[in-house]
Design a protein around this nucleic acid. Structure first.
Length: 364
DNA sequence: TAATCGTGGAG
DNA sequence: TCTCCAAGATT
């Protein structure tokens, strides 16, 4: 918005009120006990678009498995993916794993302390770079996430659409002007904590807010109108036919997904997009033959129908069972595994549901 | 820029 | 049930 003039606030008092509240009310989170830049970094990546309560157990387990940057850099991808299983946005862990290796080689294992070096790492954008540099190294960079944009839009009455990528700069500049340079770590975290606990998306607790007297949105009674955020359009629906295939030795066929795109490098049961519903068993049999050279016997009828909702599309999965009649060569992306070994592979939640239904319905 | 990329919880 | 969303990055 051109000519947009930021409201003036008493910066020093704002910082004081915010920081005092933060010291008093901050949650006792696992990563707040840590100073290790590696651990701060991991927590920030896990927290991207993910709730704190969801992240906590993942973070604890991850730190037991990979307690140091070096440990993670030396780990096998299978093992690392397994530790991320169920967290979603799997490119985050692929990028983090790659970035950690780069830090090991290029920076001798020390997480960079400059904005340029940090941002150059895979999966590290403006937010994560600012968060790690401020929290782990005390550098006065803003860490602008959804919370901070919401809080800032209300306090400073900024009516930029936070859904637009270009808006982030506006908020970074605004926050930079408010930055408490004596303690950037606490300042950034305090803003996010305020957004999480008080200045919530709906029904903000303005009466409990430590910086209420600084808030222009509250003064004008428009806190519920901010931030401005345009909706995104509704999603696609995709019909999938999936098959749980057992061979004569009682092993199950699993397939590793492509290295890029949706659910990259995760394991799955063979499945195909079904454009037609005419005789799905025959169609699946043909696709299995073409794709994997599998001579199969598909049972009539589905044993489960599963709907799985992603952020931008929905899968309607019809799940069939069948037997493999011929010998299948295994390779990097096609494996035959015993039922008790399924748990050793990283599956997306959608295919965990398939396996769970299979065990519940078919076996016993 | 707009789309892509997961999941589980809340209102 | 439906909609939105939660400490974003990448292409």
């Amino acid at each position: 918005m051109k000519g947009m003039n930021l409201k003036e606030i008493d910066t020093e008092k704002f910082q004081h009120d915010l920081l005092e509240w933060y010291k008093r009310e901050k949650r006792d989170l696992p990563w707040r006990k840590e100073r290790d830049p590696y651990k701060i970094w991991v927590s920030e990546v896990m927290l991207q678009q993910t709730r704190v309560e969801t992240v906590i157990p993942y973070f604890e387990r991850f730190m037991e498995k990979f307690p140091t940057l070096e440990a993670l850099s030396e780990a096998e991808e299978e093992q690392v993916l397994k530790a991320w299983e169920g967290l979603g946005y799997y490119s985050r862990i692929r990028n983090l794993h790659s970035a950690v290796k780069e830090v090991k080689e290029k920076y001798g294992g020390k997480v960079p302390d400059t904005l340029e070096e940090m941002t150059s790492l895979k999966g590290v954008g403006p937010y994560t770079a600012g968060a790690v540099l401020s929290i782990a190294y005390g550098k006065p960079y803003p860490a602008v996430d959804g919370n901070v944009m919401r809080v800032a839009s209300r306090i400073l009455s900024i009516w930029e659409d936070i859904a637009k990528p270009a808006s982030r700069k506006i908020f970074e500049e605004a926050i930079h002007r408010l930055m408490y340079t004596e303690d950037p770590s606490s300042f950034n975290q305090a803003l996010m904590e305020l957004g999480a606990l008080i200045c919530t998306p709906t029904s903000p607790s303005c009466l409990l807010c430590p910086v209420q007297e600084h808030c222009h949105a509250f003064e004008e009674g428009v806190q519920e109108e901010l931030p401005v955020k345009t909706r995104k359009k509704s999603m696609k629906l995709v019909h999938i036919g999936a098959v749980v295939l057992k061979n004569k030795e009682g092993k199950f066929l699993i397939h590793k997904r492509e290295a890029t795109g949706l659910l990259a490098n995760l394991w799955e049961f063979p499945n195909f997009e079904m454009t037609s519903f005419l005789d799905p068993e025959t169609r699946l049999r043909k696709l299995l033959e073409e794709t994997y050279k599998i001579d199969s016997l598909i049972h009539n009828g589905t044993f489960a129908k599963i709907q799985h909702v992603f952020s931008h599309l929905t899968w309607d999965i019809d799940v069939y069972a069948g037997e493999i009649q011929n010998e299948i060569p295994e390779d990097e992306r096609v494996k035959l595994v015993k039922p008790e070994e399924i748990q050793d592979f990283a599956f997306p939640v959608s295919h965990q549901k398939i396996w769970k239904e299979y065990k519940r319905t078919i076996r016993e």
